[in-house]
C-alpha cells in the first residue's frame, strides 16, 4: 500500500472514505491486477505454468488471468529463448499490447541469450523490447518469478500515472 503521505485518513472524520492522490490510486489498481501475457517459448514457460499452478499461485498477486491475447494484457513475460526467427513475432505482439505495458524478461535466455551463444539466438530480448525487470535463473524458480512480479509492482507504484494520462490527451 502507499506510504503515509499517500493516504490521509482519519476514521472519525472521513469514516468510510479514503483520501489519497490520484497517482497512488491509479498505480494501486494497476499493480494489483497486472494481467500477464505469457510469451512462453521454452523451458521457462514450464516454470511459468508452475507459478500459475496451485503451489506457487501467482493468483495471490492478481496475475492469474494469463491472457494469451496481447490486447487484454498488461505485462508480457518473455519466458524462454528468443530466436531470431521468433523475434519479429515477439515484437509484433508487444506492439499490439495497449499502454501501459511492461515486460519481464524471465530467465537467462530472455535476459542475455543465456547459454546459447549461437547463430540463431537473439542475445537478450532487450535488443527488441524495453525490459522492466530481468529475472536470473535457468530456469528461475517460481519464487524468483514472484519476486520479479513484486519488483515490477513496486516499479509500477512509483510511476507518475496522472502526468502520463494528461500527456497522452
Amino acid at each position: 500500500m502507499g506510504s503515509q503521505s499517500d493516504y490521509g485518513y482519519d476514521s472519525k472524520i472521513e469514516g468510510d472514505v479514503v483520501v489519497t492522490r490520484v497517482d497512488a490510486a491509479i498505480n494501486w489498481f494497476r499493480k494489483n491486477s497486472l494481467w500477464p501475457m505469457p510469451m512462453g517459448l521454452a523451458c521457462c514457460a514450464i516454470e511459468l505454468m508452475a507459478t500459475g499452478a496451485s503451489r506457487f499461485d501467482i493468483s495471490r498477486f492478481g496475475a492469474e488471468v494469463m491472457r494469451f491475447s496481447p490486447r487484454q494484457s498488461d505485462v508480457m513475460i518473455v519466458a524462454g529463448t528468443v530466436t531470431y526467427k521468433m523475434a519479429l513475432s515477439v515484437r509484433r505482439i508487444y506492439d499490439q499490447m495497449a499502454e501501459p505495458k511492461w515486460v519481464i524478461a524471465m530467465g537467462a535466455c530472455a535476459s542475455t541469450g543465456g547459454m546459447y551463444r549461437s547463430y540463431a539466438v537473439l542475445q537478450g530480448v532487450d535488443n527488441i523490447l524495453p525490459v522492466d525487470v530481468y529475472v536470473a535463473g535457468c530456469p528461475p524458480r517460481p519464487e524468483a518469478l514472484l519476486d520479479a512480479l513484486l519488483t515490477l509492482q513496486k516499479k509500477v507504484s512509483r510511476e507518475p500515472a496522472l502526468a502520463r494520462l494528461k500527456q497522452s490527451r
Binding site: 529463448t81 530466436t83 549461437s118 540463431a120
Partner: peptide, 9 residues
C-alpha cells in the same frame, strides 16, 4: 522458432 543451434554448439 526455437532452433537454438544445439548441434553446432
Amino acid at each position: 522458432y526455437l532452433h537454438r543451434g544445439d548441434e553446432k554448439i
